[in-house]
Computed example of a mutant assay.
Amino acid sequence: MHFFHRYLPNARIIRPEDLILAGGAAGIAAAFNTPLAGVAFAVEELGRKLETRTSGVLLSTIILSGMVAIALQGNYNYFGHFDVQEANFDIVLPILAIGIGCGVMGGFFSRMLLWPQRYRSFVVWEWRRLHPVWFAGGCGMIVATLGWLSGGMSFGSGYGITSQIIVSDVGLPWHAPITRFLATVVTYFSGIPGGIFAPSLAVGAAVGA
Rank of each mutant, 00 (worst) to 15 (best):
A176H: 14
I13S: 08
L59T: 05
W127Q: 11
Y76C: 03
V207N: 00
Y159W: 15
F41L: 02
I62S: 03
H131V: 06
A136T: 01
Q117L: 14
L64D: 05
F122A: 09
G47S: 08
I192F: 09
A183M: 14
R129W: 07
V143F: 04
L36K: 05
A30M: 12
G27T: 11
I63N: 02
G56V: 13
T52D: 10
S190N: 05
S55C: 07
G27F: 14
L72D: 07
V207E: 04
G147I: 03
G147R: 04
L201D: 02
H131P: 02
F3R: 07
I20K: 12
D83Q: 10
A183R: 05
Q164L: 08
P35V: 10
N33E: 09
V43C: 06
V124F: 13
A40M: 12
T145A: 13
A136Q: 08
D169F: 06
T54F: 11
V68Q: 12
A30F: 11
M105H: 01
N77S: 12
R128D: 03
P177C: 07
W134L: 15
R53W: 05
G194E: 06
T184W: 06
V203T: 06
A71F: 12
W125P: 00
V143M: 03
G47A: 15
F135M: 01
P199Q: 10
G138I: 07
P35F: 03
N75F: 13
E51P: 00
N77P: 01
I161H: 04
D18G: 13
V68D: 05
L8D: 02
W148A: 11
W127Y: 08
F79R: 03
W125E: 01
S200F: 15
D169R: 13
A144P: 00
V43S: 09
L172Y: 01
I20M: 14
F108A: 13
F155G: 00
M153Y: 14
A31N: 08
S157C: 07
I196E: 06
G208S: 12
G24P: 01
S150G: 06
I192S: 01
L182I: 15
W115E: 03
L201S: 04
G171I: 13
F3V: 11
I70D: 15
Y119H: 13
L130M: 09
D90E: 14
A144V: 09
F82I: 08
V143L: 07
G47Q: 03
G56Y: 07
V167L: 12
L93K: 09
G106W: 07
E17Y: 05
L50K: 07
A29Y: 01
M1N: 03
R53N: 10
A136M: 15
I70C: 15
G24K: 09
E45F: 07
S60I: 14
A26N: 03
S55V: 11
S150M: 09
C102H: 09
A183L: 10
L59E: 01
V207T: 05
V84L: 13
R12G: 08
